[in-house]
Simulated scan of single mutants.
Amino acid sequence: MIGYKRVSTKAQDAQLQADALAEAGCARVFEDKASGKNIDRAGLLAALDYMREGDTFVVWKLDRLGRSTKDVLTIAEDLHARGIALRILAGTLAGSYSPKGEGKFFFTMMVAFAEIERDMIVECTRAGLEAAKAQGRTSGRPKAMTEEMIAAAKARRAAGESYGAIAKALGVGQATVYRHLSE
């Protein structure tokens, strides 16, 4: 059994996937820290190249394999044609992929539903962010300096005070003062 784990960004952790793949008995695990939008992922390509007939390709959840119905089905069909089984450990499609008859139909429908679900999540997130913006709320990290602090920093700088002294007086970093005064 050959495992594959993927997270979308370097800031994310794949430990949950790693634990599940180890518990499933994967002899080797390949990894990517990249979006599932493209199939040109180094870890995925290395795993697909490494596997031989009789192996089982194991992923934690179907969405770790890919985001689009077409890409996931292409990978699954390629695996089947090479005599490699596909096993999904968690989620709606937990189990092994059967590329025949009802199994193929069910797999195809569930992959399509997973893609639609992701699209709906993205759409809802965008709508929520736009609604919050329309109400004057912003997302992300709060600004380090208020308008009053910037005005005070400008006055202190005009009086000849150093960036370091201004930063200390305002309780922010020197780079923050420099950045706000140079804008």
Results as ranks from 00 to 15, higher is better:
M1P: 14
M1S: 15
I2V: 12
T9D: 11
K10F: 10
K10Y: 11
A11G: 08
A11M: 11
Q12L: 15
D13A: 06
D13M: 06
D13S: 15
Q15M: 08
Q15H: 02
L16Y: 11
L16T: 14
L16V: 13
Q17N: 12
A18M: 11
A20S: 07
A20T: 01
E23T: 10
A24F: 14
A24C: 15
C26V: 07
C26Q: 05
C26L: 04
A27H: 15
R28E: 14
V29R: 02
K33L: 13
K37C: 06
K37T: 13
D40V: 07
A42S: 12
G43R: 00
L44M: 11
L44K: 06
L45I: 14
A46D: 14
A47F: 07
A47T: 05
L48S: 05
R52E: 09
E53C: 09
T56F: 01
T56S: 14
T56R: 10
F57E: 00
V59N: 03
V59L: 07
W60E: 12
K61T: 13
D63C: 11
R64G: 03
R64N: 11
S68E: 10
S68V: 05
S68Y: 11
S68A: 08
T69N: 08
K70S: 08
V72T: 13
L73A: 01
L73Y: 05
T74N: 15
I75D: 04
I75R: 02
I75G: 03
E77L: 03
D78L: 08
L79D: 01
L79G: 04
L79T: 00
H80K: 10
A81S: 07
A81W: 03
I84N: 01
I84T: 00
A85P: 03
L86C: 00
R87N: 08
R87K: 15
I88P: 00
L89A: 03
L89C: 06
A90Y: 01
A90L: 06
L93G: 02
G95L: 06
Y97D: 01
S98G: 10
P99N: 04
P99I: 02
K100N: 10
K100L: 08
G103E: 01
G103T: 04
M109V: 15
M110T: 02
A112Y: 13
A112Q: 14
E115H: 12
I116K: 15
I116L: 14
I116V: 12
G128W: 04
E130D: 14
E130F: 05
A132Y: 12
G136Y: 06
T138A: 13
R141P: 13
P142D: 10
K143C: 03
K143D: 07
K143R: 13
A144C: 06
E147N: 04
A151I: 01
A152D: 14
A155F: 07
A155V: 07
R157P: 06
R157F: 08
R157D: 05
A158L: 12
A159K: 13
A159M: 07
S162C: 03
S162M: 10
Y163M: 10
A167Y: 03
A169N: 07
V172Y: 06
G173T: 13
Q174V: 15
Q174L: 08
T176G: 03
T176N: 07
V177K: 01
Y178G: 08
R179A: 11
R179P: 00
R179N: 04
R179D: 03
H180R: 09
S182G: 00
S182Q: 12
S182W: 02
